[in-house]
């Protein structure tokens, strides 16, 4: 007689697993990836491949030889970190830059805390901020490398729109002049914009990815909407008060990795809250910190820092933002 399986209920399981979720995020990133390959050619491919490969390798080596635990590189999570890191770097970063970033991302930000799901900070962002602080010159060199598909636009701009604005304001120019001089129309930035990290060339491609993630129920919309909404409201207020010094909402939302950060980085499972309430607070927090850094801080961009700062509050948010329980409590002894 054949041996039956006996197990506690339930006896069926949804098709979703860690691997499929991570794969969905990578699929959602692919439109942005394709756009950036179209514009930056080989350098974009190079960054993504080096990033993904290094992350997977580092995770493998640590799990196999340092921790002696089960190797879990098959779940795509390390590869995803590598891809995200690559998309967050300037297009003509050298290969060793992302190599270092990947080692920091996986080795320090992820595995030190116990691997998948245990990390407090988003590994890709830790990698990026590490590089930003260690190699400021390379990380803010936004000149565009040679592409296979396009030519003639090389060396058009050498800084991000946000950096240009910040420098211009520091030099005493007025905001409308700067914007006019550089032709930052919202339309241009929505479809294709130069001067930014690999992944944020096209806002439309990112939004496409966002819709895919929503349809596949990988993420919930609260965090990205809260971030973008907060940035919109805050910048609108500042812009209305003093249009000469504070950039407007459309400009702020479409530059400096707000979309990339809010859709793909801030929604990272392990480092974002679990409940709707927590997610909204977290998103609003990121929005506020981003705007404050941009307007008053010394860095032109602030999304990475804002997300990392809010990452630290996630355990607290999880503790205090409980889901709505079914039925109220009765005290009848």
């Amino acid at each position: 007689m054949r041996k039956l399986i006996v197990s506690p209920a339930p006896h069926i399981h949804s098709k979703e697993n860690t691997k499929s979720l991570m794969r969905d995020v990578i699929i959602a990133l692919s439109p942005s990836l394709l756009v950036s390959i179209y514009f930056f050619g080989f350098s974009a491919i190079k960054l993504v491949i080096v990033g993904a490969f290094t992350c997977v390798l580092v995770e493998y080596l640590i799990q196999k030889y340092l921790l002696h635990t089960k190797v879990t590189i098959n779940d795509y999570s390390a590869a995803l970190t590598g891809v995200l890191l690559a998309l967050n770097l300037p297009p003509n970063s050298p290969w060793w830059l992302i190599l270092i970033g990947s080692i920091v991302a996986i080795g320090i930000a992820k595995m030190t805390f116990g691997g998948l799901g245990q990390n407090v900070f988003n590994p890709a962002l830790v990698g990026r901020v590490f590089l930003l602080i260690s190699f400021p010159a390379l990380m803010t060199d936004w000149s565009i490398p040679q592409s296979w598909f396009r030519d003639g636009i090389d060396a058009v701009s050498s800084a991000t729109p946000l950096a240009l604005v910040k420098e211009g304001l520091a030099a005493g120019q007025s905001l409308p002049d700067i914007l006019a001089a550089n032709d930052f129309s919202a339309k241009q930035m929505l479809f294709v914009k130069m001067g930014g990290s690999v992944g944020e060339v096209s806002a439309l491609a990112l939004i496409l990815g966002f819709i895919y993630l929503l349809v596949r129920r990988v993420i919930k919309p609260y965090i990205p909407v809260a971030i973008v909404g907060t940035i919109f409201v805050m910048t609108l207020i500042f812009n209305l008060i003093d249009p000469a010094h504070f950039t407007g909402p459309a400009f702020n939302i479409l530059t400096g990795g707000v979309l990339l950060g809010s859709i793909f980085m801030a929604t990272d499972y392990a480092t974002s809250p679990m409940t709707t309430k927590g997610m909204i607070i977290y998103g609003v927090g990121i929005g506020v910190i981003t705007v404050l850094i941009r307007y008053f801080g010394s860095y032109p961009e602030g999304v990475s820092f804002a997300i990392l700062i809010m990452n630290a509050t996630v355990p607290l948010l999880n503790k205090y933002c409980k889901p709505a329980r079914f039925g109220k409590e009765v005290h009848n002894g």
Partner: peptide, 21 residues
């Protein structure tokens, strides 16, 4: 299937009809 690390996706919290975590 083989058990993996909790990735803190919150899907269980979302699914629980009693609002537990």
């Amino acid at each position: 299937k083989e058990e993996g690390n909790c990735i803190r996706c919150g899907k269980c919290t979302e699914a629980c009809p009693m609002g537990l975590e």
